[in-house]
Design a protein around this nucleic acid. Structure first.
Length: 914
RNA sequence: GCCGACGUGGUGGAAUGGCAGACACAGGGGACUUAAAAUCCCCUGGCCAGUAAUGGCCGUGCGGGUUCGACCCCCGCCGUCGGCACCA
């Protein structure tokens, strides 16, 4: 425990209340009335209700909103929040109209599990947690516009989540236009004559559809999970085993957007590694589909291959065990073995399939197919190394040039035929999968021999297409999004089920007037005994008066986070999920003012959050945004223009923070001891935002001492001692006693001269450039350098200190406000001090940074030998002469011939001698 | 296995082709103090020589290359972290 460096415990609440009371951080929508005395109105000379074109250019800075867990904030959350807050404050000062909101991703499993255990409604738990998170986040002095706060669990919010679901439900993907369109534009084929047929056709094409496919069922969690939520056969949450089970589920047709989700990555400013993760997840691969005739059967087997050039090397085929032709083609003698294998494969959990991947299994169906290129008879096998859900669920096996096929062929003694010659003849061709030259690949009809792999691909594809045997295709790894969960604490689907006159069960959207669909009250939050979701317990709720029944699944947690950044734009709009004016202004597509030559960014200007959302949230949100874009509800094709992932903050031991390791740092404790300003400063001083780095309490003390030193640079220590005595005597009026702290006597209204302005302008330059590049750690270091220098001044000009307070303000806003107000004579009335938040950001004057003399290092053969001082105006010849005759250089030139002299103006001289 | 990031003092980090180690932590020494805390000042990559001022050599994971000059660019390895993983 150290002595308090400065009264942060009084300063921080003081300025937080001031900002609240004056709504300092309110952002105003176009057309919204702005109070004339609001500092934003004063700064930009705005009155009344300005149009988008009259407002300053927008800057939308977004944090990934947190799940308000019961354990509260940990030091990792505020890392990103501090970075965005610093930039929000900097942009405000620089003249932008900043949107910086915060909210709660409040649906989620923990509150529900607590409800199952205790019977306490998840809403109660959620509200308590939100209150705690709000308190913690507010104590850090972030400049959020709290009037735009949203919670995904608020009926006023999830009404619109349900509404967006309905837009998706009422849409289909038109491959002709490559975009989502209203389901009304769907054309029905002639065979669909009855309404029931048309409905079936329509429902199969909606962007939100029902599927009976096998899903990832987690018995422990009592719910299905999306593929993305399953890691190594275990649930991402909790690590419980996941099995595959066929169930009726809601799906969203994200695969229709695969190509656009991929190509539009080129239009946004994300890190290469993040884009690469999304690309891998989408998994585009070009190849061909080829039809193989089954011997003695009218059916064909269609396979997908990326290597049609190896068709001559296909020596057998493999169907996935679930392939629909398996039972059809299986021969009598093999029937028992095939069924046995299908049984085996279906009970193998994903975990077993993954862990036992090394050992290939499979059985022969007894059937043969004909290789279309050479008429060869090849056996058809089934094996679970072929996945039903990728491509066509069937492959042609080319063991010579595919590692998996090779392994399988070796195990089951199947023929291996080389058809690609590796470029280096010494390379073993067994399992050679790279590009080479085609061999053994010619027939009377088509000749590939001698062609390179890419030529061979082209030639064979053309041949297949001309014969109607196959065609070029593109496949994606991306699967449709499994969108329903068997949970209570999520958005209910605005859907009901009924039977038509034939008795066929079908689904129908509830009218938008029925929104929001609220979850029913329950006594018990567990799934039902027969495995129905918890909502099925509410019998009265499920049963609608007209005899139809409600959908009892709920939406996954991702639903609410797919569009929250849009709700912030117009958070209280009761008519629409976001108003057009607000949307086009904040998303940068409305005509508006510019700042310099800077155009408004399309989409969110900066989005900061953790890498854990690299594929899930970011892909789902981009998908929803594209649907909304196609349907005309938003004006940009992408939601998040620039995205930055903050690194992980580890415990003091360098390990990941976790309760079980006991290395969790609670921000509340740090704030109590050092204050919010020091906390914020330390989070940024630790290192680059994107890097992972360990917490170190000693490091907090370091920046805390810096703030103490800054404080003492400004204030009179005698008056502070009096203040402390007054506080001891009369602790209840401590905040009032703050007024008695005075500026140091050597802080004076005098003109600044070069020895003040040179370090100041160097600091302005460095801090500004580093803010633009998000290099917060070096910006802070530049401020430390300035303070260390200024501590030595005999007299400190008020103007210089004011500018420094502005530089410090984005980082440590409370102390900056206090010092700023002290530098103004009307300090006693904070309302009359010009707003620090909206004071124009200082610019540096390069004139102050020009040096008269330069120190130029002199090297001999690349090694530093001396440093010479020359007038800044010296020409290269003069510098060279000075370098050659430098005292410490001469001994190294003795007896040598100078071969070359490199003079880098203003930087360095290198003399090459031998 | 594949893809991507990264590797610098005792520690966090700085320098992206031009004086390696800014800034800070830790450590050491000193001032103030009855004492401690706080504060302020000085030293602080390693090795060698010198009483000292100082000087020399080595040094950015390892090995090679390009260059007058490489932490930085290129090639090959090793290690750490993150992602994907039977996707035909």
């Amino acid at each position: 425990m150290s002595r308090r460096q400065y009264p942060f415990h009084l300063i921080e609440p003081k300025w937080q209340s001031h900002w609240d009371a004056t709504s300092t951080f309110r952002a105003f929508n176009p057309g919204e009335e702005i109070p004339p005395q609001h500092p934003f109105a004063l700064r930009h000379q705005l009155r009344g209700a300005p149009l988008a074109t009259e407002l300053p250019p927008k800057f939308y800075i977004l944090d990934m909103f947190p799940y308000p867990s019961g354990s509260g904030l940990h030091v990792g959350h505020p890392e990103g929040y501090t970075a965005t807050d610093i930039l929000a404050r900097y942009r405000r000062a620089a003249g932008f109209h900043v949107l910086h909101p915060m909210g709660w991703d409040a649906f989620g499993l923990p509150a529900e599990q607590y409800a199952v255990k205790t019977g306490q409604h998840p809403r109660v738990t959620t509200e308590q947690n939100i209150a705690n998170f709000t308190r913690q986040i507010r104590s850090l002095g972030f400049s959020y516009d709290w009037s735009r706060e949203v919670a995904t669990t608020d009926p006023g919010y999830f009404l619109w989540t349900q509404w967006i679901f309905l837009q998706i439900y009422h849409a289909w993907f038109n491959p002709q236009t490559n975009r989502a369109e209203s389901i009304d534009t769907l054309k029905y084929p002639a065979e669909c004559t009855t309404e029931s047929q048309r409905r079936a056709y329509r429902d199969a094409r909606r962007l939100a559809f029902v599927s009976e496919a096998p899903v990832n069922w987690c018995p422990e969690l009592g719910t299905v999970l999306a593929n993305e939520e399953v890691i190594d056969g275990k649930s991402e949450v909790g690590g419980f085993p996941v099995i595959r089970k066929p169930m009726r589920q809601w799906m969203l047709r994200i695969t229709a957007f695969a190509e656009r989700l991929l190509t539009d990555l080129d239009t946004i400013d994300w890190s290469d590694s993040l884009k690469e993760m999304q690309r891998n997840w989408i998994g585009r691969s070009e190849g061909a589909e080829v039809d193989f005739q089954i011997e003695g059967n009218a059916e064909k087997i269609r396979v997908f291959t990326t290597r049609p050039d190896t068709l001559f090397g296909a020596t057998y085929m493999v169907l996935s065990p679930e392939h629909k032709l398996v039972s059809e083609i299986t021969s009598e003698p093999q029937a028992a073995a095939v069924q046995g294998y299908q049984q085996f494969a279906s009970t193998r959990s994903d975990l077993e399939r993954t862990e036992l991947a090394k050992e290939k299994t499979g059985v022969w169906t007894g059937a043969f197919a004909v290789n279309p290129v050479n008429g060869q008879r090849i056996p058809i096998w089934i094996a679970d190394y072929v996945l039903a859900s990728y491509g066509t669920g069937a492959i042609m096996a080319v063991p010579a040039h595919d590692e998996r096929d090779l392994e399988f062929a070796k195990k089951f003694d199947l023929p291996i035929v080389q058809v690609v010659q590796p470029p280096d003849p010494k390379t073993d061709w067994h399992g050679f999968t790279n590009e080479g030259t085609a061999i053994n690949s010619s027939s009377s009809e088509v000749a590939l021999n001698g062609l390179t792999t890419s030529e061979a691909k082209r030639t064979i594809s053309q041949w297949l297409e001309s014969r109607g045997l196959g065609k070029r295709t593109i496949n994606f790894k991306l699967r449709d999004w499994l969108f329903s969960r068997q949970r209570y604490w999520g958005e209910p689907f605005p859907i009901r089920w009924q039977r038509d006159s034939d008795g066929t069960l079908y689904h129908e959207a509830l009218p938008s007037t029925a929104l929001p669909v609220l979850p029913p009250s329950l006594e018990d939050y567990k799934p039902t005994a027969d495995g129905q979701p918890p909502l099925a317990r509410a019998k009265d709720w499920v049963q609608l008066p007209d005899g139809s029944i409600r959908e009892t699944n709920t939406m996954p947690q991702w639903a609410g986070s797919c569009w929250y950044y849009l709700r912030y734009l117009d958070a209280r709009n009761p008519q629409s999920f976001v108003g057009n004016q607000a949307e086009s202004y904040w998303m940068g597509t409305a005509a508006s003012k510019t700042l310099g030559d800077r155009r408004p960014t399309p989409g969110v200007d900066l989005y900061v959050g953790g890498t854990e959302h690299a594929v899930l949230h970011l892909l789902y949100a981009r998908f929803w945004h594209k649907v909304l874009f196609d349907l005309g509800h938003v004006s940009t094709a992408e939601p998040f223009y620039k995205l930055v992932n903050q690194g992980l903050i580890q415990g003091e031991d360098g390990q990941k923070m976790s309760k079980s390791r006991g290395n969790v740092v609670n921000p509340d404790d740090v704030l109590r001891e050092y204050g919010a300003d020091a906390f914020r400063l330390y989070e940024m001083f630790m290192g680059p935002l994107q890097d992972s780095k360990p917490w170190n309490t000693k490091g907090v003390e370091g920046v805390y001492r810096f703030l103490g030193r800054t404080w003492r640079l400004f204030i009179d220590e005698a008056s502070e001692s009096q203040f402390e005595q007054a506080c001891t005597v009369d602790p209840h009026n401590a905040a009032t006693h703050l007024q008695s702290i005075q500026l140091a006597p050597n802080v004076q209204e005098i003109p600044a001269d070069a020895h003040h302005l040179k370090p100041l302008h160097a600091c302005i330059k460095k801090v500004t450039e580093d803010l633009e590049g998000m290099r917060f750690n070096t910006a802070i270091s530049a401020m430390m350098v300035f303070v260390n220098e200024a501590m030595g001044w005999e007299v400190k000009p008020v103007s210089v200190l004011k500018t420094f307070a502005q530089l410090l303000a984005p980082f440590s806003p409370h102390i900056a406000e206090e010092l700023w107000s002290m530098l103004h004579t009307q300090r006693a009335d904070p309302g009359s001090v010009p707003s620090l938040i909206y004071s124009p950001w200082p610019t540096h004057d390069p004139a102050w940074l020009i040096e008269d003399t330069l120190e130029i290092p002199v090297q001999v053969n690349g090694k530093l030998r001396d440093v010479i001082r020359v007038p800044a105006t010296s020409d290269p010849a003069t510098i060279e002469a000075a370098a050659r005759s430098a005292e410490k250089v001469l001994p190294f030139l003795d007896g040598k011939t100078i071969r070359k002299v490199i003079v880098v103006p203003k930087k360095l001289v290198n003399i090459v001698a031998s």
